Computed example of a mutant assay.
Amino acid sequence: MEEPIRILYVINALEVGGTEGQLAELISGIEKERFSPYVCCLRTIKDKSSYSLDCPIIALGVSRLMSLQTLIGMLSLVRYLNHNRIAIVQTFFIEGTILGVVAAKLAKSVSAIVVSKRDLGFMLTKRVIWQLKLIYHFADRFLANSKNVKDYLIKKEGVNRGRIDVIYNGIDIEALEKKMQEVSGADIRSREGIPEHVSIVGICANLNRKVKRVDLFLMAAAIVCKYLKDVFFVIIGEGCLKKSLLDLSEHLKIDLKTRFVGSQVNPIPFIRMFSVGVISSDSEGFSNSIMEYMGCGVPVVATDVGGNRELVEDGVTGLLVPCGDAEKMAEAIQVFLDQPAFRKKAGEEGKKVLLERFAKNKMIRDHEFYYASLTKEKRMAFKKKRGKFSA
């Protein structure tokens, strides 16, 4: 029996987030007889309870790249890679990619370096893109989580099309359905002061990022409120923008109909109450929130950006609206609120699509095939190269 392929994932930190959650799902489900996962966090692990990972985890204690600690951490990582005979290194985020790719290139044991890209570079400056382009020369492959992200890598970061593969995010439907039952809708409505008879339109977003455009969601909500009385708006998420968004809801005179419920360890009981789930972002790689909406049978209204079109079939599982257009977003929300039959049908179709194309098990099997093919390619290339030298 062959030894399992050893894979090290390099990530900034194991904080609660979309990328971190997908990585945790992958590690929990990957076939351990064939693959042996390891995790390297750049920063110190403060909260080990965020994700329960069944694999070795190391922390380098690196807080910023331009520091002596980074050099020490990189050399420590090189030794760790060689000592544990790591074959594949996969990196996430800017810092994880810069440090992880260089360390992997210096390690003798590593046969394949994979850079993960999961957004459209909305935070990247020209200087950072230039730095990444230098680092990318040392990577073997790139793994995007949507075709749109792949196109971005080609056009904006100069990666050759032939070096990029796409594996979509996945969601655990069975686990999601169990989470639905943890808190009743009646309890949530009672706690948040939302009457039983009203519809709920909701959004799940990171309130630290302006790119999520929760302000646009509130502006659309204000328009909807002009025409419909029995509707409330729920915002799931926490962050530094919360105060300004609360002020905006008051300015728009919809504060009595909006509920900021904060970050939720389990947002699913809230989402299942939504009549409509909204994504208002100016930029999206591949939205985990949309997958959660669809998994709960909730129709989606989303801005037509990034990978949203790959998830939402316009007019079938949801409605796509132009980026930054509060009027169009409000119209789409009203369509679903005014047409219960269409709303129900779109929710059902969304759940069906999710099961067929974006299930957790499919995501895991796709990664397993990908890793196996990487090591096979490297073995074949090595044999071919050795044959040339022996000749």
Rank of each mutant, 00 (worst) to 15 (best):
Y168N: 10
L120N: 08
S111F: 15
Q131W: 05
I129Y: 14
A186T: 14
W130P: 00
I129W: 08
R161N: 14
V110P: 06
N169E: 06
G158N: 08
Y168F: 11
A144F: 05
A107H: 04
A107Q: 05
R163I: 12
L120G: 07
R141M: 11
Q131L: 10
F122K: 00
F122P: 11
K117W: 12
F92W: 14
L153G: 09
A175Y: 03
K117M: 03
V166Q: 08
F122S: 15
V159W: 07
V89G: 07
V89K: 01
N160K: 08
V115G: 07
I98R: 00
E157Y: 10
T97L: 02
Y136Q: 03
E95A: 13
S116Q: 04
S116N: 15
T125S: 11
H137I: 07
I88F: 06
M123Q: 03
L176F: 01
S146H: 08
S109G: 01
A144G: 13
I164K: 05
K117F: 01
L153C: 14
L124R: 08
K179I: 01
A112L: 13
V102P: 03
F92R: 03
G121F: 14
G96K: 06
L132M: 02
G121Q: 09
W130A: 13
G100F: 12
V183R: 10
M123R: 05
I164T: 05
